[in-house]
């Protein structure tokens, strides 16, 4: 009996999660008439929405998002790895830093965005990728750091001590014997960080809503003054969602370890 209930529960969960994806996928191939009558299950597929997606420079925005994501992840990994190592080994910042680093997540983005906007304006970086990357780092870097602390905790201290006695400096020891042990964690953190950056709408919309639109901003732009262009928007959403689904598939297991490992050990 338990097996049946369990299966029913899982099936429900799958339906709840999968339904929006299915709806968006179908909508991306519907024409206007079909979209306006959700009860219609059979319709003639059309590529009109995709034409709009191409003409609306959605792919360019995807490229922008990709660039922003890659640069953000690159910076976050270099800084976050060193930071997480320091917190794991030297208790940098005291016992607070382990969790305190996540406090930034409690702050609503709306609080940060105004100062960021003003700074970007003064530095003439408004509507540039630099501004977007900087804003993304405000939430990506703490998460990456916190995520990696648990992985460093899992590497015995003796590894680098052994290397140091054997003739390496601490930095060399870190690179040659500690880093290889946490590479899987760094990979997962990188993908996780990329998804965070890729999905951000708020900062990108306010700091760079003009020429350097990221993908979520572009998706939102299909909400026009003439109404929501559901079909084209759905097609754009598909473009933005597919890479995330693929990424999550590859890191799911390590994601759990990173999230639980970051805080538990003290």
């Amino acid at each position: 009996m338990i097996g049946v209930w369990r299966r029913a529960l899982i099936a429900t969960a799958v339906v709840v999660v999968a339904f929006p994806y299915a709806w968006v996928t179908l909508a991306a191939f519907k024409d206007r008439a079909a979209l306006n009558d959700p009860s219609r299950l059979s319709f003639t597929p059309t590529l009109a929405n995709w034409r709009e997606v191409v003409e609306g420079r959605v792919l360019e925005s995807a490229l922008t998002s990709l660039l922003v994501g890659v640069v953000t992840v690159g910076i976050a990994l270099v800084v976050g790895t060193l930071g997480a190592y320091a917190i794991s080994r030297f208790r940098s910042g005291g016992a607070v830093s382990r969790f305190g680093i996540l406090l930034s997540q409690l702050m609503p983005p709306a609080v940060l965005v105004v100062p960021l906007f003003l700074v970007a304006f003064d530095l003439q970086l408004r509507d540039t990728m630099v501004a977007v990357v900087a804003s993304h780092l405000t939430f990506v870097l703490p998460v990456v750091t916190w995520f990696l602390i648990g992985f460093f905790d899992g590497v015995p201290r003796e590894f680098e001590e052994q290397a140091m006695v054997d003739g390496y400096s601490r930095l060399q020891a870190f690179r040659r014997v500690v880093l290889p042990q946490v590479l899987p964690g760094i990979g997962a953190a990188g993908i996780f960080a990329f998804v965070l950056s890729w999905n951000d709408l708020f900062y990108a919309l306010i700091l760079a809503g003009g020429n350097t639109t990221t993908l979520p901003v572009k998706v939102a732009s299909f909400n026009t003054f003439r109404g929501v262009e559901l079909g084209a928007m759905s097609a754009a959403i598909l473009v933005s969602v597919v890479p995330v689904v693929i990424a999550c598939f590859f890191v799911q297991r390590r994601l759990v370890r990173g999230i639980s490992g970051g805080g538990l050990k003290s």
Binding site: F159, E161, Q162, M164, V165, D166, G167
Partner: peptide
């Protein structure tokens, strides 16, 4: 440590 010319064996061996 690297300049002391010593070798150490740890309790958990610390093999990479």
């Amino acid at each position: 440590p690297k300049d002391r010319d010593l070798a150490m064996v740890f309790q958990n061996y610390a093999l990479y």
